[in-house]
Amino acid sequence: METTLINTHVKLLASDFNALTPLPSDPSLFSRSATPSPLSRAETVGTITSRDLKPGKFLRFTIDDGTGCIPCILWLNHSNSPYFTRRSPTDVRQIAQLAASLASLVQVGVVARVRGRISGYRGVVQITVADVGVERDPNAEILHWLQCVKLAWKCYNVSPCSR
């Protein structure tokens, strides 16, 4: 199995991201027909067009990059999730503080760069957010589009033997 893009934050246009489907053999990995390599992480840049905060639970938002909308979820349930009970309280507190600071950056109308794990929820592919950065350069989205197209043509969409 081709594994070079697993754990890489692949730059994808929303139109490509929304075409991803989970691999039947491993639902934590995703692929699309034109992308031979399975993917687990993605990076997007776009305008935040919706924001739904459930305090202490999660922040759900959408990124519009002009080719589609990518749903994103930022978990804020560190204090009550069983997932974190085995970790040190200091680590959990720091992770919770980081998540809260990322959540404060997510505002409707802002252009943001979001990285995270590709996941599925109720049949929709989404990003489980690991990092958010606000982009103030008005040309940042254009650069992201060009990088996505170049990477798709030169890297993501080609079979390993033709690289």
């Binding site: 929304n18 959408t62 519009d64 002009g66 080719t67 589609g68 909308c69 929709v124």
Partner: peptide, 11 residues
């Protein structure tokens, strides 16, 4: 997979 609910702004 199903499409998200919010429409994107076509360029």
């Amino acid at each position: 997979m199903a499409a998200p609910i919010i429409s994107f702004g076509a360029l």
